[in-house]
Simulated assay, not measured.
Amino acid sequence: MAGNMFGRLFGKPKEEVSPLSTLEKLNETLEMLEKKENLMQKKIAQEMEKAKEFTRAKNKRAAIQCLKRKKLYEQQVEQLANNQLRIQDQMIMLESAKVTTETVDALRSGAQAMRAQLKTTKIDDVDKTMDEINESTEDMKAIQEALANPVGGMAEFDDDDLLTELEELEGQELDEQLLAPSTAAPATHLPSVPTARVPAQAGKAQPVRTEEDDELAALQAEMAL
């Protein structure tokens, strides 16, 4: 009974109106106003035609009545146009408010999700994860170093012994190059001595002198001295 009394005093609580239902209602109202405006436009055209007919019939009183109704319809058309502008303006504002609300809701949801995620992620967990990463990195380095070391027979060789043997080979190669005879040594030429020309006999071919012949002649000349 107390509830009924408070209900009569304060009335029933109003139901929350959603932006979507409001936009639908405004859109329906806008369509209704457009239909009424079209109807008024038709009536204005009809009254204008009647006024022309009465004017041609010399019925001035009836023509004036038609023009008066035409003026009334025009006033209604102007009022309907103003109402449509108000509804369109409200629809634009409501659309903007709807977009703003959805944006704020999305940002709020993102912030809540971030806070929830940060609550589950403790600083100790982060430190532990970083330690695991560093430990894994050190293990990887150790594995790579172990793979780089020689195994089997290669592990028995000493690098110092190999370097000593390499130096000996390089020394032997240098000695062989120094002791090898030079293939481009200049040849020793003895001084040439002019020889007497022997007139060539007719019909006989002159013998061809060789380098050995020249060297022999030079030797004989030197011995004669």
Results as ranks from 00 to 15, higher is better:
residue 135 E to A: 10
residue 96 S to M: 06
residue 22 T to P: 03
residue 121 T to V: 04
residue 51 A to Q: 07
residue 118 L to Y: 10
residue 155 A to P: 04
residue 28 E to W: 14
residue 79 Q to E: 15
residue 223 M to L: 13
residue 50 K to G: 00
residue 190 L to C: 07
residue 206 Q to I: 15
residue 20 L to E: 14
residue 60 K to F: 10
residue 182 S to V: 01
residue 44 I to L: 09
residue 17 V to F: 06
residue 120 T to I: 02
residue 56 R to I: 15
residue 69 R to F: 15
residue 136 S to V: 03
residue 139 D to P: 00
residue 205 A to N: 01
residue 225 L to Q: 07
residue 192 S to Y: 06
residue 2 A to W: 03
residue 118 L to I: 12
residue 135 E to Y: 08
residue 70 K to F: 01
residue 94 L to I: 10
residue 63 A to E: 05
residue 211 E to C: 01
residue 71 K to M: 10
residue 153 G to P: 08
residue 1 M to W: 02
residue 149 N to T: 08
residue 92 I to R: 09
residue 200 A to R: 04
residue 21 S to P: 11
residue 140 M to P: 03
residue 36 K to F: 12
residue 98 K to G: 03
residue 163 L to G: 03
residue 160 D to Q: 13
residue 161 D to N: 13
residue 23 L to H: 03
residue 203 G to C: 01
residue 98 K to I: 00
residue 91 M to C: 06
residue 182 S to I: 00
residue 74 E to N: 02
residue 95 E to M: 09
residue 134 N to S: 13
residue 114 M to K: 07
residue 89 D to K: 05
residue 190 L to P: 12
residue 49 E to W: 07
residue 201 Q to W: 08
residue 85 L to G: 04
residue 17 V to H: 05
residue 168 E to C: 00
residue 163 L to I: 07
residue 193 V to Q: 10
residue 197 R to I: 05
residue 13 P to W: 01
residue 87 I to W: 00
residue 21 S to N: 11
residue 91 M to A: 12
residue 63 A to W: 01
residue 63 A to T: 05
residue 122 K to E: 11
residue 162 L to K: 05
residue 74 E to W: 01
residue 82 N to G: 05
residue 37 E to F: 08
residue 52 K to A: 03
residue 97 A to L: 06
residue 206 Q to D: 12
residue 3 G to K: 04
residue 91 M to K: 10
residue 193 V to R: 05
residue 207 P to T: 06
residue 43 K to I: 10
residue 167 E to R: 13
residue 115 R to V: 10
residue 31 E to S: 15
residue 40 M to S: 12
residue 196 A to D: 06
residue 107 L to V: 01
residue 155 A to W: 00
residue 195 T to D: 01
residue 83 N to C: 05
residue 113 A to E: 10
residue 195 T to M: 11
residue 189 H to N: 07
residue 221 A to F: 00
residue 219 L to I: 03
residue 217 A to N: 12
residue 208 V to C: 10
residue 129 T to K: 09
residue 106 A to Q: 09
residue 209 R to D: 14
residue 104 V to G: 02
residue 224 A to D: 14
residue 198 V to L: 13
residue 196 A to M: 08
residue 165 E to Y: 01
residue 183 T to C: 06
residue 115 R to H: 11
residue 70 K to M: 08
residue 168 E to A: 02
residue 63 A to K: 00
residue 154 M to F: 13
residue 10 F to A: 12
residue 210 T to N: 03
residue 171 G to F: 02
residue 82 N to Y: 04
residue 10 F to R: 05
residue 30 L to G: 03
residue 69 R to D: 15
residue 178 L to M: 15
residue 182 S to Y: 10
residue 207 P to F: 11
residue 54 F to I: 04
residue 73 Y to P: 05
residue 132 E to F: 02
residue 26 L to S: 04
residue 212 E to V: 06
